[in-house]
Design a protein around this nucleic acid. Structure first.
Lengths: 326, 326
DNA sequence: ACGATGAATGAAAACGTTTACAAAAAGAAA
DNA sequence: TTTCTTTTTGTAAACGTTTTCATTCATCGT
């Protein structure tokens, strides 16, 4: 089952077999067919290990993400995968759970040359470690990025997108608008909060601390808890901007459970346009991110980087989707 | 950055460095510290490639799944990943899109010894190819399996589960019950249809061909389309059993859009208990599969197989979850 | 002081490829 | 035929590890 067995059976040298396998021109038709016969006879497939060791090419890409459960990431992954496969690469999906120990394992996979590059979507990744890694290996950031590092990224204009979302609420007549945000160590969280604040200020509306809620994890339950807190306030908001559809959908459900109506009693707008946002009741207004495209572009970028081509960061377009929840 | 560099810097042989790295007892304290110093000095990490070539161990598991977008799979993956990591393995997530060409690529990854085993969740996988692969390499099937092959699997009793779901509808007073099924080349689809038919027969209820709808893909839209078709029937069903929460949620949405009420006008029960099912309106009754556990067990099984331990197939418990849609 | 014992270390082979270089074979031109 | 090209093939080194076996070096009992 090694190249030697094939060579012996075909009565040629290993070099010739290797040439046949790698479709080198320099091999006579007659020998080629005999080798090909031997290969299929023995059901031989070259060892990636041996090959990689020699060529240091694994055709593997690392994709780092905090959690596979968030539909936002799955769409991006689809884009990455399609693009990578088209260029002969496969992806190694790595869920970090925002756990630095796991991150370290995956980083080593790159340093060990098991993979040729990393696409990082993990916001909580150790900035310095990533930067250090990027000095020696191809790294691309997707969605989440480090403002002052030179690592290329692909993202949207989070601040503007949040501004647009909140402006939409204001234009629908709302003046008391709450924010359900995620952890502020995420860059997107800070950027979207900025957008929220700018929109409010621009229209002369007050920002009240109690209207800004920070959720602890990215699950529906966090959205439910958030809205319960907000609805208990003495001075209740009439609309909510949630930085993730997941929060928004949780909120939607909870409001309904409490016997209130969306958008009459309280309006909600989310962020991401995950597929489920259209299945919620009522359908969720949201900011669409071009997730599939983000995946495609980051895959292109990392593969370009690997092959030595220079790449530039990209900021893609978002889009306001007006549906029934506002 | 190779073991040789470390050896030179530490003034020892490569063998000694290897021993230190692999935590072999047989190395004097003094040398050990010097080697460790050299390692951190050079920021050395052993090459997986070189190591694997020598030991033919990659500590990588292949996970084959048709689509990453289905939340059903993501939960299983969580289980696999946690278990694998705990035993020092990493997983290579492979989305096949039910494309035989992609499957072939991933199978080769195994034959190439890049991965040590496969957990296949892909129902449409080429049975013969998989069987052939299983003769030489560790393979485990999760959720979907081949009835007559000897490849071990972990699953639930789909027929019984479907039987339970339909019986629940019958006991709620329904007599005209439709089935939204997926493609019949999936084993689970056939098994659940059997369960549906058995339950109907058991209670002396008629099974009408037009009440059995086969969806073409596993997205919300397919559920919406299905229910539209069913509602247009002359003799309309009063309840629907969908073999996937995804269909059920699509149906729920569409019924609501058409101005009808669940469960008054039509009751719905799904399958899987994906996290969304609790966010739908109304909340979806469903059959809970122990997805996380299925993932854990299949990971244990494949790692056992790899280390030569004999494994047995497992059939896990399901559970009927009664919520507002029935 | 002297083997005998056991612990620590090193030299070198092996894993399965690719590829530079050398060698051989085949054709072409004389 | 002979010589020169060109094409095809083979040999062997290299990639970065692990591990067997041999060797060196302490330690200890006598």
């Amino acid at each position: 089952m090694t190249i030697h067995d094939v060579a012996k059976l075909a009565g040629v040298s290993v070099a010739t077999v290797s040439r046949v396998v790698n479709e080198n021109k320099r091999v006579a038709e007659k020998t080629r067919t005999r080798v090909e016969w031997a290969i299929s006879e023995l059901n031989y497939a070259p060892s990636v290990l041996g090959r990689n060791l020699r060529t240091s090419k694994s055709n593997l890409l690392l994709v780092l993400l905090p959690s596979i459960s968030n539909p936002f990431y799955t769409e991006i992954i689809n884009g990455i995968e399609d693009t990578a496969i088209a260029r002969g690469y496969n992806i190694l999906l790595c869920e970090t759970d925002s756990n630095p120990k796991r991150e370290a394992i995956y980083f080593n996979l790159l340093r060990n040359r098991l993979a040729e590059g990393i696409i990082s979507m993990d916001p909580s990744v150790n900035k310095n470690k990533l930067l250090e890694l990027a000095e020696s290996y191809p790294v691309v950031q997707c969605s989440e990025y480090d403002t002052e590092s030179p690592i290329p990224y692909v993202t949207i204009d989070n601040e503007q997108a949040a501004y647009d979302a909140v402006t939409h609420l204001i234009e629908s007549g709302h003046r008391k608008i709450a924010l359900i945000n995620s952890d502020e160590r995420f860059l997107y969280a800070r950027q979207r909060q900025n957008g929220y604040e700018k929109a409010m200020q621009k229209h002369g509306l007050p920002i009240r601390d109690e209207w800004v809620y920070n959720a602890e994890h990215l699950r529906f339950g966090a959205g439910q808890k958030a809205i319960r807190t907000l609805l208990q306030l003495h001075d209740r908001p009439s609309a909510v901007f949630a930085v993730s559809d997941v929060y928004a959908i949780g909120a939607l459900k909870e409001i309904h459970r409490l016997g209130k109506k969306v958008p009459e009693d309280i309006a909600i707008i989310g962020f991401d346009k995950i597929t489920f946002s259209d299945m919620a009741f009522p359908t969720l207004s949201t900011i669409a991110q071009p997730m599939y495209e983000m995946g495609c572009i980051s895959a292109e970028m990392i593969m370009d980087e690997i092959s030595g081509v220079n790449v530039n960061s990209r900021v893609l377009e978002h889009k306001l989707i007006k549906r029934d929840s506002t």
